[in-house]
Design a binder for these strands. Structure first.
Length: 277
DNA sequence: ATCCGGAAAT
DNA sequence: ATTTCCGGAT
């Protein structure tokens, strides 16, 4: 398979220079800052994540500041972001980072809970300037459409070194993500204004999984449950059931999962609270 | 393959 | 009313 990347990169980087989204952490290579931003921005628009990032980096300027805090405090600050397990994993990770430091963990950041392939590569690229592609949903979409491949993951495995040759990975990765957000959008991509329109394969067959409805889902109840516990503190499980207006069986399952996630604790007297251990 | 929140955009 | 978001764990 022959692949031309030179024009793709040149046009992309040129576009980026004039159109990039400006954020404070983009010119930052402090690993804790990058880590916080990346965890907060998982499945979250940057415009919204940035506000939370500022709040968190101010409250927890260093890993030890979070490590010595509490889950309740962190969940309160997290409120509105969703996927509360991220906050719990971030809390646990901060303890590990405070003890071992990022340089001590390098390059295997996936040993931190909540850090997977994407976030590891984000740290490697944005902090350590390693030649890796931060393969988020934007990058996959662009690669698939432009190069006409059904499996962008395989493509990147094969051609990442070519893509990053003579190129600062931080710059290319951020260019890809902004381009995917602004021009090569999931719906109604701006092909008419796209500087890569001529050479693009325009492969739009990347199947997207439509997600379960939020209304009436376990996710909705989980979110509400956490919110109630943060507001009212330790609560009897029957009182909680009345507040949530959920049937027993469903609530039992939800609480069981929340316990498994380490977010709540249920004692023998049927009292439930945010996990403080 | 499925679960996991919630706000904003469309 | 539906889709989207700089994913990760099981």
């Amino acid at each position: 398979m022959e692949v031309k990347t030179k024009n793709f990169k040149n046009v992309l980087l040129k576009w980026y220079k004039r159109n990039k989204r400006e954020y404070s952490w983009r010119n930052d290579s402090d690993p804790w800052s990058i880590y916080l931003l990346e965890v907060i921005s998982q499945q979250t628009q940057l415009s919204r994540a940035d506000k939370y990032y500022k709040k968190f980096i101010k409250e927890f300027p260093a890993p030890k500041d979070m490590a010595t805090s509490s889950l309740k405090k962190i969940l309160e600050m997290w409120s509105g972001l969703g996927y509360n397990s991220r906050a719990k994993r971030m809390f646990e990770s901060s303890k590990i980072i405070a003890e071992k430091s990022f340089d001590g963990l390098y390059p295997d950041f996936q040993q931190l809970p909540g850090v997977g392939p994407y976030t590891e590569n984000a740290l490697l690229s944005f902090v350590y300037n390693e030649k890796v592609i931060t393969e988020d949903i934007n990058v996959k979409r662009i690669i698939s459409r432009y190069f006409g491949v059904k499996n962008p993951k395989k493509f990147i495995e094969r051609f990442s070194s070519l893509l990053l040759k003579n190129t600062e990975s931080r710059k290319l990765n951020q260019a890809l993500m902004d381009f995917g957000s602004i021009i090569c959008r999931p719906r109604n991509p701006l092909c008419l204004n796209c500087p890569l329109e001529n050479s693009c394969k325009k492969y739009f067959n990347l199947e997207t999984k439509s997600q379960e409805k939020f209304f009436g889902s376990n996710r909705e109840v989980r979110g509400k449950l956490i919110k109630i516990l943060l507001k009212k503190g330790r609560l009897n499980i029957n009182t909680l059931q009345q507040e949530l207006n959920t049937d027993q069986e469903k609530l039992d399952k939800i609480i069981k999962n929340l316990q498994k996630d380490g977010l709540v604790k249920l004692n023998k007297n049927n009292l439930i609270d945010i996990n403080s251990s």
